[in-house]
C-alpha cells in the first residue's frame, strides 16, 4: 500500500510522517528532528541531516528515583536542543521506532503539542539510501517552557491497574508470549530487568508489541491490519479505557501509540511500572 494512503487511514494521520515527506521538509525551520535509539553509537555514526539526539536513559529518566524527569529538566533539555514550544518534532530511531515512541510518550506527558513519528524509522531511511550525515547541527538555545508533567491522562499507576484488573477492564500485555505465560521471567536477553514472579496481570490480554510493525520495513501496519489484531483479535473496545504494560514501560509506549493515535482508542494509558513493579510487589495477584 502507498505510504501516504496508509497514513491517511490512521485515526490521527497527523502524527505519522513518511520518509518522502521528511525528505521534502528537511530545511523547514519549524521542524526539529530527534533520533532516539537503543544503540548509543548509532546517532554519532550518522543521522538524518539536522537531527539531534535524545538518549532515553541519560536524558529522560530521573537518575535518583524510578521516574521521569520533571518539567524544569524537560524545559532545560529542549531549550538546549533548540526546540521551541511550537516546533514540529519528528521522532525516529532504531528497533522499529520502539525508543522513538517512548520519547513521544514522554513528550506528551509534558504537553508538547506537535510530535510525529517517522514511519519506518532509521531502518527505512537508511535502507532507502537517503542522506545521512555525521555533522551535528548548530543549535540555537530556545526558552522552552514545558507544562507540569501530566501523570493522569496517559500514565497509569499500579493501583489503577489493580482496579482495572479486578473489574475485568481492558489490559494489554505487550511482552513476549513466554513472559505472559510466566514461562520466562524476563524478555530474552534482558535478565536484569526480571521479577520475582512470572505471569501476567489477571485478565490482561496478550499482544506482543512488534506485531504492530512490518519488521522487514520497520513501518506500522495499515489501520485495517491493526484493527484485525487489536479490535477483532483481542476484542478490545476502542471506546473503553485501556492500559498497556510490558517490563519497564518502553515497549508498551509503542502499543500505547498504536492504540491511541493509529486506531483511535479514546482513553489509553501506559503503565510504566509494568512487570518489574507488578511481579515484585507483595500481595499483588498474578495469573498464569
Amino acid at each position: 500500500m502507498n505510504t501516504a494512503l496508509k497514513i491517511s487511514e490512521y485515526a490521527c494521520p497527523d502524527v505519522v510522517v513518511s520518509t518522502d515527506w521528511l525528505s521534502q521538509n528537511l530545511n523547514n525551520p519549524k521542524i526539529r528532528i530527534i533520533e532516539s535509539n537503543e544503540d548509543q553509537l548509532l546517532y554519532s555514526s550518522g543521522h538524518i541531516p539536522g537531527a539531534i539526539e535524545i538518549d532515553w536513559a541519560k536524558d529522560l529518566n530521573d537518575q535518583f528515583s524510578r521516574d521521569y524527569i520533571q518539567s524544569d529538566a524537560f524545559s532545560s533539555l529542549l531549550s538546549r536542543l533548540g526546540v521551541s514550544n511550537d516546533s514540529t518534532v519528528i521522532l525516529y530511531g532504531d528497533k522499529n521506532n520502539w525508543w522513538a515512541c517512548y520519547t513521544f510518550w514522554v513528550f506528551k506527558l509534558f504537553g508538547h503539542e506537535d510530535v510525529r513519528i517517522l514511519d519506518g524509522g532509521r531502518l527505512k531511511w537508511v535502507s532507502e539510501g537517503r542522506e545521512i550525515t555525521k555533522e551535528k547541527p548548530k543549535l540555537s538555545e530556545t526558552k522552552y517552557v514545558a507544562k507540569i508533567r501530566d501523570d493522569k491522562t496517559y500514565r497509569a499507576f499500579r493501583d489503577e491497574v489493580l482496579l482495572v484488573s479486578k473489574n475485568r477492564g481492558q489490559l494489554v500485555d505487550v511482552r513476549s508470549p513466554e513472559e505472559f505465560s510466566g514461562e520466562r521471567l524476563h524478555m530474552e536477553g534482558y535478565p536484569n530487568e526480571g521479577a520475582l514472579r512470572g505471569g501476567h496481570v489477571p485478565n490482561a490480554k496478550s499482544m506482543p508489541w512488534a506485531r504492530a510493525v512490518d519488521t522487514k520495513t520497520g513501518c506500522f501496519l495499515p489501520a485495517s491490519e491493526l484493527k484485525a489484531l487489536y479490535v477483532e483479535g483481542l476484542e478490545l473496545d476502542p471506546k473503553k479505557p485501556t492500559i498497556a504494560y510490558c517490563r519497564i514501560g518502553e515497549r508498551s509506549s509503542h502499543t500505547w501509540f498504536v492504540l491511541h493515535y493509529l486506531l483511535g482508542f479514546e482513553d489509553v494509558k501506559n503503565y510504566d511500572g509494568s512487570w518489574t513493579e507488578w511481579g515484585n510487589s507483595v500481595g499483588y495477584p498474578i495469573e498464569r
Partner: peptide
Amino acid sequence: VFGSTISMGKGEG
C-alpha cells in the same frame, strides 16, 4: 567499554 547506561538488551547481546 560501553558504559553502565547501555540498555539491558544491548548489553546482554
